[in-house]
Simulated scan of single mutants.
Amino acid sequence: MIDRIARSWLCIAGLLLAGAVQAGTLTLGVVERANDPRLAPEHLASGYLGHPGGPIRDGVEVALKESKFSLDAAGLGWKLAVETPSNVAEAREAAKRLQKAGAQALVADLPADELLALAQATQLPVFNVGEAADALRQQHCGPNMFHVLPSERMRADAMAQFLASRRWMRILLLHGPSGDDKARLAVVQSSAQRHGLKLAAVRPFELSTDPRKRQAGNALLLTSGVDYDVVWVVDSDGEFARSLPYRASLPRPVVGDAGLVALAWAPYFERYGAPQLAHRFERAAHRPMLDNDWAAWMAAKTVVQAALSRPQSALSVDALNAEALDGFKGVRVSYRAWDRQLRQPLLLTDGQGVIAMAPAEGVMHPANVLDTLGADAAEGLCKTPH
Rank of each mutant, 00 (worst) to 15 (best):
H43P: 05
A266Y: 06
R194V: 11
Q104N: 09
P37E: 12
T349F: 08
P253N: 01
R97I: 05
D291W: 00
A160T: 01
M159V: 01
P359G: 05
T223D: 14
R57K: 09
W168E: 00
A73I: 06
F281A: 02
A164V: 06
R343I: 04
P311F: 07
P52S: 03
G19T: 06
A121Q: 07
D72V: 02
L174A: 02
L290T: 02
Q139P: 13
C382L: 04
V317Q: 15
P385Q: 06
T302P: 07
P37D: 07
R184W: 09
Y335I: 03
A264Y: 14
R336E: 11
A216T: 07
S334P: 10
G14V: 00
W338E: 08
S313N: 12
S70P: 10
A186N: 07
V188M: 01
R332L: 15
T122Y: 13
P359I: 01
M289S: 02
V331I: 11
Q189P: 09
A132E: 11
R283H: 12
F281R: 01
L26S: 10
L342N: 10
N321E: 13
A284H: 03
V261Q: 06
D350I: 00
M169V: 08
L260N: 05
L260H: 09
L325C: 12
L342F: 14
A319P: 12
P385C: 04
A135H: 13
P177G: 07
L220V: 12
G130H: 04
F205H: 10
D376R: 02
D326L: 03
A216R: 01
N35S: 12
N292H: 07
S8H: 12
S190P: 09
T223A: 05
P251L: 06
V202F: 05
G50I: 00
